[in-house]
Amino acid sequence: MVLVRSSGNAVTPADGLRTHGAVVAGVDTRQLCDKLLAFAFEEAAHHRAALHVLHGWTPPPILSYAPALDPVVLQETAHGITATLQEMLRPWRDKFPSVEVEVRAPIGHAAIQLVEAASDASLVVVGRRIRSSTLGSHIGPITHAVLHHSTAPVAVVAHDY
């Protein structure tokens, strides 16, 4: 599913995508994201756009000073997440060598990070787990927030757990 908002008086290209800006993909390093990454890389390649892969994260909540607040620990954690993202992207970079890829793992809530990154993006790609239950929400809080607050078109790619 792709959501494209009306942009008032601005002219939107026939394909619904802006003609400038990167494709931004929000990735959860704890989930299989092959369908999401395939879609994001294909769109970036098709539109000759850069691909910005983002995984926002927050340190665990604590009640008092702890090593988790140490800037060195935070930096090492961010480096580990970035390394995980790089490993996830390796096969896709090999398949799409023409796509320029930027990987970021900023500290902060993923939804806020994605909405901010979407401010000058041509497309934002997020995931939605396929659920068989008829009860409860079928999209997560990050996808929900991006759908409601992104100014860029948003593609929601359904994927297995």
Rank of each mutant, 00 (worst) to 15 (best):
M1G: 15
M1L: 06
L3H: 02
V4E: 05
R5M: 06
S6Y: 13
S6L: 06
S7C: 10
S7A: 12
G8R: 08
N9P: 09
A10Q: 12
V11E: 15
T12N: 04
P13S: 14
D15G: 10
D15H: 11
G16E: 04
G16Y: 03
G16D: 05
L17K: 04
L17I: 03
R18E: 09
G21D: 02
A22R: 12
V24P: 07
A25D: 04
G26Q: 01
V27K: 03
T29Q: 11
C33L: 03
D34Y: 01
L36Y: 02
L36C: 02
A38R: 12
A40P: 03
A40Y: 09
E42T: 07
E42V: 03
E42G: 11
A44F: 11
A45N: 08
H47D: 11
A49G: 09
A50P: 05
L51P: 02
L51V: 06
V53A: 14
L54P: 06
L54W: 10
H55Q: 13
G56E: 09
T58D: 12
P59G: 08
P60Q: 05
I62W: 04
L63F: 04
Y65L: 13
A66M: 08
A66S: 14
L69M: 13
P71Y: 14
V72M: 05
V72Y: 01
V72S: 08
V73A: 09
V73G: 10
L74V: 15
L74S: 04
Q75S: 13
E76R: 12
T77W: 05
A78F: 02
G80Q: 03
G80I: 00
G80E: 10
G80D: 11
I81Y: 12
I81S: 01
T82I: 05
T84L: 07
T84Q: 15
T84D: 12
L85K: 04
E87A: 12
L89C: 00
R90I: 00
R93N: 04
K95F: 00
K95G: 01
F96M: 01
F96C: 00
S98Y: 01
V101A: 14
V103F: 09
P106L: 04
I107T: 10
G108Q: 08
H109P: 14
H109S: 14
A111R: 07
A111D: 11
I112G: 13
I112N: 02
Q113E: 13
V115N: 09
V115Y: 03
E116T: 10
A117P: 12
A121P: 07
S122R: 11
V124F: 01
G127S: 15
R128A: 15
R128P: 02
R129V: 13
I130A: 12
S133I: 05
S133E: 10
T134R: 15
L135K: 11
L135Y: 10
L135V: 15
G136W: 14
G136D: 08
S137V: 09
I139Y: 07
G140R: 07
P141V: 08
P141W: 06
T143C: 15
H144L: 14
A145N: 13
S150G: 14
T151R: 11
T151E: 07
A152P: 06
A152C: 11
P153I: 00
V154D: 02
V154N: 02
A155L: 08
A155Q: 06
A158E: 08
A158D: 06
A158R: 10
H159K: 01
D160S: 08
D160R: 14
Y161F: 09
